[in-house]
Simulated scan of single mutants.
Amino acid sequence: MKLTTAPSVIEPARDFPDLLPHARPAVRLHPRRGTPGPYGSHIGGPVLWPAAEPWPECTDHKDVNGRAYTLPLVAVAQFTAADFPEIRFPDGTDLVQLLWCPDWHDQPHPEGWGQACRLFWRRAAEVTDPLTGQPDPKAHPRYDEGMIPRACVLHPERVTDYPGDEELPAGLADRFETWLTERGLTDDLTTVPGYKLGGYLDWRTTGLPAALECGECRAPLELFLQCDTHEYPLGSWAPDDAPDRFRPLEERHLRTGDEAGDASREPVGMTVGRGSHAGLFVCSADPRHPASFFTQ
């Protein structure tokens, strides 16, 4: 199935060339509910995990009486080099898996997510004896249902993303805002919403951190994966003048409130942050360094 983002009302090369140097490639993943297998790329569903390797757990929890307990991590996503050559896979790897704790941790990150949000880089051919039954986080009474993704297949679409005001130079951000206001336009160009690889995160809720750098080597961080409660803004969740650009052209016939319509707008079924979005960032020098996770 092909899913397509509508063109923006703004064409940078024609309308605002100063934005062009800040463009970044991104991949809209367009997850849709399905039954992915353990060998491919997907959100939710089974990952290719070696049977001999212990399933990771988060031990950073205590009950009201101060007693420690553990939660098995949840398989959130898996991506292959064959599907996503845009990912900078470390030498000798062609598979990356994201697992996290099914209970929100406090920011700042990565301090609040030390063992709770982890990337595993593998070579798929080396997993010769895969685990057939993965832990069910719902078996634990303390899991947060909003942290567990539904199994989804992916329909990737390559797009170009641009930064929001927080990551544009101050003068450029002001000029762009003035340009939009003078023409009565709404920004439908920057910080593409939904699940995506690469691109830019919208920082309008919390503001841009003072330093986006790796906690291990201080190299700059780059957005690896954006998770989003909604694939596109709509209705009461969006401003009155919110653009409809990000609703795929092929799904415009679906009605909000219907099962199919809601599944297309909230396919993964997770509540990210306060019903908003979040970004998983990796070290630009070595993506094997601990990842950082920022919620909005």
Rank of each mutant, 00 (worst) to 15 (best):
E251F: 00
A238H: 11
V282Q: 03
P54H: 04
E259T: 11
P290Q: 10
V272S: 00
L95S: 11
T132W: 05
R158C: 08
R183W: 03
G112C: 13
L254T: 04
H230Y: 14
G44E: 00
E86Q: 12
W100H: 07
C217M: 10
A52Q: 12
D258N: 09
R288H: 04
V153D: 09
E126S: 12
L29N: 03
R122Q: 15
V9H: 15
E231N: 06
R158M: 08
R118L: 15
A124R: 12
T128G: 10
P102Y: 12
V47F: 04
F294N: 00
G133F: 05
H22L: 12
P149M: 09
S236M: 08
R288D: 01
C217P: 07
G66H: 13
L19K: 10
E126G: 01
D202A: 13
G199I: 06
G45Y: 14
C101L: 03
P110G: 06
F79M: 11
R88Q: 13
H155S: 08
T181Y: 02
W100T: 02
S8W: 09
V64R: 14
D15F: 05
F89Y: 14
L98A: 05
L197A: 03
T93V: 03
M270E: 06
R265Y: 01
Y69S: 08
H140V: 06
P267D: 08
R122K: 05
L249I: 15
P193Y: 04
L19H: 13
D94M: 12
G112A: 09
A173E: 03
D63E: 11
P193N: 04
T80W: 11
H30N: 12
F281V: 00
